[in-house]
């Protein structure tokens, strides 16, 4: 009865690989870190394959694992950072920013980076992973209502921080990607 596990895992792996790698890459500062997060996520998932849900929920479950792996990873990183803060700043200059990022986008990026990790993660799950509230609720083990409230507040905090930074809403349409509503 356990013989179908490799096939089941592989099917989920194929389905989720693109999304989990994107999730990691969007949140890690270096490709090495992202690769570590992806590998660890799938390693944990395989060890716990008996708990892997069926269908679409499997991907959400994997997002949840990846989120925990990433959080773990960041804790380690914070310790390292404490020792190499100066060096970090220097390296950051070398780590080239995308050339097409205008001044306005830099400000938005800066404001976004300064949000709490929870707010950033929620907004990213909507904007980057394209998850619906229900899916985020499933992934995080929260009620839909809780997700709705948290998203509402995260959006509001972001809006206020943007306003404080002098970025009004209603900027040029060119910045609209795959628009999602909540």
């Amino acid at each position: 009865m356990s013989d179908d596990r490799p096939a089941r895992f592989e099917a989920v792996y194929r389905e989720a690989y693109g999304r989990i790698t994107a999730y990691a890459a969007r949140r890690c500062d270096s490709p090495q870190d992202a690769a570590d997060v992806v590998a660890e996520t799938f390693a944990v998932a395989w060890r716990r394959v008996d708990e892997l849900p069926k269908g679409q929920e499997a991907v959400l479950w994997l997002y949840g694992v990846a989120r925990n792996v990433l959080a773990n990873h960041r804790r380690g990183e914070t310790l390292r950072r404490a020792r190499s803060a100066g060096l970090d700043a220097e390296m950051a200059d070398l780590y080239a920013a995308p050339a097409d990022r205008g001044v306005e986008m830099s400000v938005i990026a800066e404001v976004f980076r300064n949000l709490s990790e929870d707010d950033r993660e929620l907004l990213s799950l909507v904007a980057w992973e394209g998850l619906e509230r229900e899916e985020i609720a499933t992934m995080m083990g929260l009620s839909r209502n809780a997700v709705r409230i948290r998203l509402h507040r995260a959006r509001r905090r972001f809006s206020r921080a943007l306003a404080a930074a002098g970025v009004p809403f209603g900027m040029e349409r060119r910045m609209v990607p795959a628009g999602r509503s909540l």
Partner: peptide
């Protein structure tokens, strides 16, 4: 009205891997 847009619209372009795109190739 045109003056307000979703905050997610603003942060979409910040993603290293564009929204909707896969990361690695399986």
């Amino acid at each position: 009205g045109p003056e307000i847009k979703s905050v997610e619209d603003l942060i979409g372009p910040l993603a290293r891997v564009r929204p909707g795109r896969p990361g690695g190739e399986v």
